[in-house]
């Protein structure tokens, strides 16, 4: 590699890092200016002490956990079955799981409202529980591309067919195979998908706002419209949560008790 190519490479890297970190640095710096003349964490203290913050954040965390549970229950058996019995269907399933990336959340939520409103055959929006269920399923759809890919990649690292047959020959039924063989062997991949789902749900605005649920995303928007420093502190907190999730993905992938996947 020539000297100029090396310099160009470093220049591109430095530009990229500045492009990414300078606004973040600015954001963080501004979030510390709540007290006149000195840097302080006053904005963070006010945000964290706000009962609204606690309520909306707790609500979103609970919704994220429910979404993860639904995602695992839907995606793991589906990806397992497609790999085991219907490999021909894989491209179609992949296409389906990619749809939430191209269909805007607002279209999905309007579809839900139209389908499940109080005058429909399944009036989910007519009750708090029903709307919460609808929101959890909506989140599951939004997280589907990430969850499916993570699980499918995990399944690729194990010999699904032979492990299944080995378990069957030892008397195991489908529930035992999924719960005690397949899931524990793709747990790192499932957790990766789970953390991505968590990050998506915590910051999601459209579904929660249009279904009128007290989630963290709409709270972020509301604070942003009315306060000066708190929205910036909240943004930094949201970034920290996302990065924390990414760090956890890296961490759990090291827990797998298997040899490195073969090519």
């Amino acid at each position: 590699m020539s000297v100029w190519a090396r310099i160009a490479g470093w220049a591109a890297l430095i530009f990229g890092l500045l492009y990414f970190f300078v606004p973040l640095g600015g954001l963080f710096e501004f979030s510390l200016r709540a007290r006149r003349g000195v840097y302080s964490f006053d904005a963070y203290a006010r945000v964290l002490a706000d009962p609204q913050f606690q309520a909306t954040f707790t609500y979103s965390v609970v919704m994220a956990l429910v979404t993860i549970a639904i995602g695992i229950l839907i995606v793991v058996p589906t990806a397992f079955w497609v790999r085991l019995k219907m490999p021909w269907a894989r491209p179609y399933v992949e296409f389906l799981t990619l749809l939430p990336l191209v269909i805007p959340a607002i279209v999905i939520v309007f579809g839900y409202i139209r389908l499940y409103n109080t005058s429909s055959w399944l009036p989910l929006t007519g009750s708090t529980l029903g709307t919460n269920i609808l929101l959890a399923f909506g989140y599951t759809i939004l997280a589907l591309p990430y969850m499916y890919r993570a699980v499918d990649t995990g399944l690729r690292t194990i010999d699904v067919a032979t492990l299944t047959e080995a378990a069957q020959s030892l008397g195991a039924g489908w529930a035992t195979i999924l719960g005690r063989i397949i899931l524990p062997n793709v747990i790192a991949a499932v957790l990766s998908g789970a953390f991505l789902t968590f990050a998506i749900v915590i910051g999601e605005f459209t579904l929660a706002a249009l279904l009128d649920r007290p989630a963290f995303g709409p709270y972020l928007q509301r604070i942003g419209a009315n306060k000066a420093y708190e929205p910036f502190a909240l943004s930094v907190i949201a970034f920290a949560i996302t990065w924390g999730c990414l760090a956890l993905i890296q961490l759990v992938s090291r827990f797998q008790k298997t040899a490195p996947a073969k090519a």
């Binding site: 010999d159 032979t162 047959e165 069957q168």
Partner: peptide, 20 residues
């Protein structure tokens, strides 16, 4: 009879031990 109802043991070429 399904494979898990036959009480027939099998050893595979690829070992197929449960990695977890």
């Amino acid at each position: 009879l399904k494979p898990n109802q036959r009480n027939i043991g099998m050893v595979f070429q690829a070992y197929a031990l449960f990695p977890n």
